[in-house]
Amino acid sequence: MRTLTIYHLGRMDYTAAWNWQRRIASQRSAGKIGDTLLLVEHPPTITLGSKAHPDHLLVPVEQLAMQGVTVVRCDRGGGV
C-alpha cells in the first residue's frame, strides 16, 4: 500500500514555499520519502519564468510592490 503525506502550510511567501517544494522533490527523487502533497496559499505573486522579460509586466515592479504584489523570477518555463 502506498501512502501520501500531506503538509498544510497555510499562507506562505512564494519563495519560501518554492524552497520547501524543491527540498521535498529532491528527497522524493532520492527515494528518501514517499509521495507528498503541499497545500499552500501565496500572497499576491507574479512569477517570471525562464522566457519572461521584466518589460512583459504591464505595471512597474515598484508600483506592484506598493500594492502588495511580489514579483519572483523562477525556473519554470514560460513567461509572466
Rank of each mutant, 00 (worst) to 15 (best):
R11Q: 02
R11G: 02
M12A: 09
M12P: 07
M12Y: 02
D13G: 12
D13S: 02
D13I: 01
D13T: 03
Y14D: 10
Y14W: 12
Y14S: 10
T15D: 09
T15L: 05
A16P: 01
A16T: 12
A17H: 03
A17L: 08
A17R: 00
W20G: 02
Q21F: 15
Q21W: 15
R22Q: 14
R22M: 15
R23I: 13
R23V: 06
I24Q: 04
A25W: 05
A25L: 13
A25V: 08
A25D: 03
A25P: 01
S26G: 12
Q27P: 02
Q27I: 14
Q27T: 11
Q27L: 15
R28Y: 07
R28I: 02
R28G: 08
R28H: 13
S29V: 00
S29E: 08
A30R: 10
A30S: 06
G31R: 00
G31N: 01
G31A: 11
G31T: 06
G31E: 04
K32W: 02
I33L: 00
G34E: 08
G34F: 08
D35G: 07
D35P: 11
D35R: 02
D35H: 09
T36R: 04
T36N: 00
T36M: 09
T36C: 00
L37N: 07
L37T: 08
L38Y: 08
L38H: 06
L39K: 11
L39S: 13
L39F: 11
L39E: 12
V40R: 00
V40L: 06
E41R: 06
H42P: 02
H42A: 01
H42G: 02
H42L: 03
P43K: 05
P43F: 02
P43H: 01
P43A: 01
P44L: 10
P44K: 03
P44N: 02
T45N: 04
I46Y: 07
T47H: 04
T47G: 08
L48Q: 04
L48Y: 07
L48T: 13
L48D: 07
L48V: 13
G49I: 00
S50D: 13
K51W: 04
K51V: 10
K51I: 03
A52M: 08
A52I: 13
A52Q: 03
H53L: 11
H53M: 10
